[in-house]
Simulated assay, not measured.
Amino acid sequence: MLEVSGLNVAYGESQVIRDVSLHVAPGEAVAVMGRNGMGKTTLLKSLIGLLPARGGHIRLGGADITRLPSYQRVAQGLAFVPQGRMVFPFLTVEQNILSGAAKSGHRTVPEYLYRFFPVLKDMRQRKAGNLSGGQQQMLAIARALISEPKLLILDEPTEGIQPSIIKEIAQTLNVLRAERGFAIVVSEQVLSFALDLADRFLVIDRGRLVHDEARATLDQDKVRSFLTV
């Protein structure tokens, strides 16, 4: 489904992503692991089009989207939940979710989103700025999913969230993925969350992918060694 080949991304003259190639199969969940500053967020922003590629190609379903702006990538089937969630604090929960509906054309919140995130239904008229961090993360995911993506991209979704909510979000995403048929790419430092969610693990170090392993054979100690300073 997603094919990335020879991707290079830079901030000014500073190259951050170096010759990265990866693939994500339909319905697969892939975790990109690494310490802060290793290029996780830059890689994900380049996939959604917030940062331009200096070289290489990004293909979705065989179509080259490397030069497309973000809104066109969303129309092609990508959805993005940024680090820090970035909900609209003065809009209600319902208004926030519907703000992501341009591609799908939904005029009301689909029932399945409230079924998977019942707290959002209970709080649908509450302003998003009054929600907890975990509730805001659920809201950000629901806003992304209303576009009915083929691939959901999440950047550090566990940041600032209590452990019990982290586990709940992983379980919900797994069931949603099975029911709705989308794939996931998630950048993460919390290995327990990634183990609950991902089928395959990539490790990024200084802008290069240095490890790629399926969950079934994962050497957790080796992955942890890349996450510690």
Rank of each mutant, 00 (worst) to 15 (best):
M1G: 13
L2E: 05
V4I: 15
V9D: 05
E13M: 12
S14D: 03
S14H: 03
V16M: 12
S21G: 14
V24I: 13
V30K: 00
V30R: 00
M33H: 06
N36H: 12
G37T: 13
G39C: 14
T41G: 08
T42L: 01
L43A: 10
L43Y: 00
S46K: 09
S46F: 02
L47M: 15
L50V: 04
L50E: 05
L51R: 11
L51F: 12
L51P: 05
A53Y: 00
R54P: 01
R54T: 12
H57F: 14
D64I: 00
V74D: 06
A75F: 04
A75W: 03
A75M: 07
A75K: 08
G77E: 04
G77C: 05
P82N: 06
P82K: 03
P82G: 05
R85C: 09
F88Y: 11
P89M: 13
L91K: 06
A102F: 15
K103L: 07
R107T: 10
V109A: 11
L113C: 07
Y114M: 10
R115F: 01
F116D: 14
K121Y: 13
K121C: 11
R124S: 10
Q125H: 14
Q135A: 06
M138T: 12
M138H: 12
A140T: 13
R143S: 03
I146M: 05
P149V: 10
P149N: 08
L152S: 15
D155V: 04
D155W: 01
Q162Y: 02
P163K: 12
P163V: 06
I165G: 01
I165W: 02
I166W: 05
I166T: 11
Q171P: 02
Q171L: 10
T172R: 12
V175E: 06
A178D: 08
G181Y: 11
G181W: 10
F182K: 05
S187H: 01
E188Q: 02
L191Y: 03
S192T: 14
D196V: 11
L197T: 04
L197H: 01
V203F: 01
D205V: 06
R206M: 09
G207A: 11
R208V: 13
R208C: 08
D212T: 14
E213S: 08
A214R: 11
R215P: 00
L218N: 06
L218M: 08
K222Q: 07
L227E: 03
